[in-house]
């Protein structure tokens, strides 16, 4: 079982980090930094205002960056017939989705947390706020990753699935951003705890929802 897990995880990581033809893990990070860079241009050189709103802007940028990899999470493997071959080998869709969630988070969460450091310099937020942003991203990105895999499974095979996926992700990610960015305003840990709790709910339901969606897609 563990060697099967490692084999699947290794392939998923290679697919998501290097991405073959579809961009890889670098694209969301660059997009995230580009939004952070644009923000001061749009708001103007008002340091107190930037410092006050910059943390929330980082959260919005992270959420938007989460939309970019949606179309290469599930769809390419469905097209290739990989999921059918795995099913014939008795590997359940729930298990495959769990592995993919982990791989997707690894290729998306930590790089975004690293990129938040230069982003915080661009929007001029202080160290204490940056600490809260990083903790919030640590609590929230697993939920974003789970949500991404769930939505990618549901929209895989649909025409315009990628655009639809983006539209579906935004409202479902609202609780994450409310509590995650909210922790910046209150400075408390309760917002972080609620972000983490919502992430855990998403992590728990995604394997079943996404697994059912992939099976239903075979009909």
């Amino acid at each position: 079982m563990s060697s099967q897990f490692l084999t699947l995880l290794r392939r998923d990581l290679a697919q998501l980090f290097l991405g073959g033809r579809r961009g890889g893990a670098l694209l969301p990070v660059l997009f995230f930094l580009a939004v952070a860079m644009l923000y001061p241009f749009a708001v103007g050189p008002d340091a107190p205002l930037l410092g006050k709103t910059g943390g929330g802007m980082i959260w919005v940028a992270a959420l938007l960056a989460a939309i970019l990899p949606l179309d290469r999470l599930i769809e390419p493997d469905l097209e290739l017939g990989m999921f059918d071959q795995w099913a014939l080998r008795g590997i359940s869709e729930e298990w495959l989705v769990t592995v993919r969630m982990l791989a997707h988070w690894l290729s998306f969460g930590p790089p975004l947390m690293l990129a938040a450091i230069p982003a915080s310099a661009l929007v001029g937020i202080d160290g204490e706020k940056l600490r809260l942003v990083e903790l919030g991203l640590l609590a929230g990105t697993p939920g974003l990753a789970a949500l991404g895999v769930m939505i990618a499974s549901i929209t895989a095979g649909l025409r315009g699935g990628a655009a639809l996926g983006g539209l579906l992700l935004i409202p479902l990610a609202v609780p994450l951003i409310v509590f995650g960015a909210g922790s910046l305003a209150t400075g408390g840990t309760s917002g972080l705890a609620l972000t983490g709790a919502f992430s855990l709910v998403l992590l728990a339901i995604t394997p079943f929802a996404a697994g059912a969606a992939i099976r239903e897609g075979r009909r």
Partner: peptide
Amino acid sequence: GSVGLVDERPALDPH
């Protein structure tokens, strides 16, 4: 017994 399937999709990573 277990099943092996070959259809029009090779299920091999193209890149």
